[in-house]
Design a binder for these strands. Structure first.
Length: 608
DNA sequence: GCCGTTTTCGGCCCGACTGTTTTCAGTCG
């Protein structure tokens, strides 16, 4: 674990322990905010941990927290954390992760029953003693029990590539059930912001038929539990493993299998669509800043619209107060004298300083796939099938980059096989020529070459030279220390034959942390040698991750967005790679996959 | 504990839903 993460974890625990102790929520909030900001930094905070002035320049870091950072960087310890730990048993923090159990309830259980961990909590539920805790009744206990059960099934945030198709299908289901009764429908939340993992799915509906919509939602096939069932808000858990393709066929048994994910449905009047979409898209931090802006202007913002702030206790929309703006996001941002920005960058990380909406990369900008495998190594498509699929997508270029010899499990190619493969790719090109003799799509002969532990490549230079494109990727020794990893990857980046650093850290989301190199140094090396860093679009990788893309973009580093195609459907993952790029404020210029065939080829040849 | 084109002190986002309550506290997003 790098220093940033370790520091963020400590500060976050301080915040949580303060919450349990019932201390000032603004103080705990400040620690939590600092933790979040530090975790999102793209550079090693250790580089400036000796310089208090620089620390104070960071958002959300004041004198007190700066001192804690300096202390931790220098000694590996944080006195305040230790002192709080003396007072607050660690098990209480774990209890707080249970949905429905907040700091107040945990404190009450702790003080009343002396329960300090999950085992004690379960025991108190089983023997009924939990009912003696103030404000703890049978229904509340039942909910806690359900939540613990889900937690033990290994509930975690879901990959965006799993959540997105479910959201798409829920929306299709509601549309098919309700037809014209639905005026507008979309998903919001972290899914709309394109985050790499999704805690729950938010679906927003504008309709006058709230009751029928709620009913259709709560009775969807695959629903395993109804958590909330109000007039305008419902929450259910839905099985992810259900065969959603069969939803519309009547009379079939719907298996309720796989892990479940929570879906929230929010029903709003059509006039409030823009306000509601903003509100439920978040992020929370972005919304807080927007509301502060509203207050500064004598206005108040909620999910129903932007209203004059008359300081009345009852919400304005319930008193028939007319909104200043509410129908579209754009008009609300405009009234707040703020630039409308895309959902992916609404993280309160500098977007409010933008004078105009940035041009972020879009799926339609991508014209080339530069990382793809065939049956020669571990793919399921032939060279021709791969190229045909790329052509269908309107791409002008497809690079065939099968694995190199060290990737034995992936059937990597020995030099002699690679030479034959290059020939086969040249030959396949002949099938993609139009009547005037021009290629209908350009096939590039390449390789995804292993970066060995010490940073050397898996083929000799004279062989690499024969390839049109070289993607160098780390596949093993993915737990080596940060210093070695940095050295190893920089060596590959600087290699004169390498075009792209493939999935730079080798992480798998929710599965494996991967390498933890000094990203700032990698980016600097990549800028200098005009090597592109890859955003691997597979939803289990999304590597580079968003905050590193942001740092790379700031430095003017080239970026490649590639699907790492192994089978035909993998091209569909492009949307996740693009969203990750957008989260890093990536425009089309720096992304090599958006370039014209001519410009792309010139860049590739410049390394030959 | 941070922050400031109205403040260096006094603020700090807003509403729905639920459950346990006789008017509201806790949690969530």
């Amino acid at each position: 674990m790098g220093l940033n993460q370790a520091l963020a974890a400590k500060l976050d625990e301080i915040a949580k322990m303060m919450e349990v102790l019932g201390e000032d929520s603004f103080r705990s909030g400040a620690n939590a905010r600092a933790a979040r900001n530090i975790e999102a930094l793209a550079f090693d905070i250790g580089d400036i941990a000796g310089d208090k002035k620089k620390l104070l320049e960071l958002e959300g870091i004041g004198p007190k927290i700066a001192d804690k950072i300096m202390e931790f960087a220098a000694t590996g310890k944080m006195k305040e954390h230790g002192e709080l730990r003396e007072k607050v048993p660690a098990g209480l923090l774990q209890m707080m992760t249970i949905p429905g159990l907040g700091p107040k309830s945990v404190k009450a259980i702790w003080e009343t029953l002396k329960v300090t961990d999950m085992a004690g909590l379960k025991k108190a539920i089983d023997d009924g003693s939990i009912l003696t805790v103030p404000r703890m009744g049978a229904k509340a206990v039942e909910k806690i029990k359900l939540s613990i059960g889900l937690a033990e099934q290994g509930q975690q945030r879901l990959w965006i590539g799993v959540a997105m198709p479910i959201a798409d299908r829920v929306i299709e289901h509601l549309k098919s059930k309700l037809g014209k009764k639905i005026k507008k429908i979309d998903f919001a939340g972290s899914l709309r912001r394109g985050k790499e993992s999704i805690g729950d799915i938010d679906v927003l509906v504008a309709t006058n038929e709230a009751a029928a919509t709620s009913e259709a939602f709560r009775t969807m096939p695959g629903v395993v539990a109804i958590l909330v069932g109000g007039d305008t808000k419902s929450s259910v858990r839905i099985a992810t493993g259900v065969d959603l393709a069969r939803w519309d066929s009547e009379g079939q048994d719907q298996e309720k299998v796989g892990p479940s994910i929570q879906i929230d449905l929010k029903i709003v009047p059509e006039d409030s669509w823009g306000a509601a979409l903003m509100y439920f898209t978040g992020s929370k931090e972005h919304n807080v800043k927007l509301r502060q802006k509203a207050l500064d202007m004598g206005l108040t913002l909620n999910e129903y619209g932007l209203f004059p702030d008359d300081k009345e206790a009852t919400p304005p929309h319930q008193r028939g107060v007319k909104a200043v703006a509410s129908k579209t996001e754009e008009e609300i941002y405009k009234k707040l004298k703020t630039t409308w920005v895309q959902p992916e960058i609404r993280e309160a990380r500098g977007e409010f300083e933008l004078k105009e909406t940035p041009r972020l990369i879009e799926v339609e900008d991508i014209k080339a796939e530069l990382h793809a495998h065939t049956t020669a190594s571990d793919g399921s498509l032939s060279i021709e099938e791969l190229a045909a699929k790329a052509k269908e997508r309107g791409f002008h270029t497809i690079a065939v980059t099968d694995h190199s010899q060290s990737s034995v499990i992936a059937n990597g190619l020995k030099p002699e096989r690679l030479l034959k493969h290059i020939e086969a790719i040249r030959k396949a090109q002949e099938k993609f020529i139009d009547k005037s003799g021009k290629p209908t799509i350009t096939l590039l002969a390449g390789s995804e070459v292993d970066i060995l532990n010490d940073g050397t490549l898996d083929y000799k230079d004279d062989l690499l030279k024969q390839l049109d494109v070289v993607v160098a990727s780390p596949h093993n020794a993915l737990s080596q220390d940060p210093q070695s990893a940095t050295k190893r990857l920089i060596k590959a980046i600087k290699h004169p034959m390498v075009h792209i650093l493939g999935h730079p850290t080798g992480r798998l989301i929710n599965r494996r942390a991967g390498l933890d190199p000094d990203m700032g140094k990698l980016i600097a090396a990549a800028v200098e040698s005009r090597t592109a860093l890859e955003i691997n679009a597979h939803w289990m990788r999304l590597d580079l991750r968003d905050v590193h893309v942001r740092a790379a973009v700031n430095a003017g580093c080239l970026i490649a967005i590639d699907c790492d195609v192994h089978q035909g459907e993998d091209y569909d993952n492009l949307r996740y790679g693009v969203m990750t790029g957008r989260r890093g404020w990536l425009g089309p210029e720096l992304c090599v996959n958006t370039w014209t065939a001519k410009k792309l080829l010139e860049w590739l040849k410049s390394k030959r």
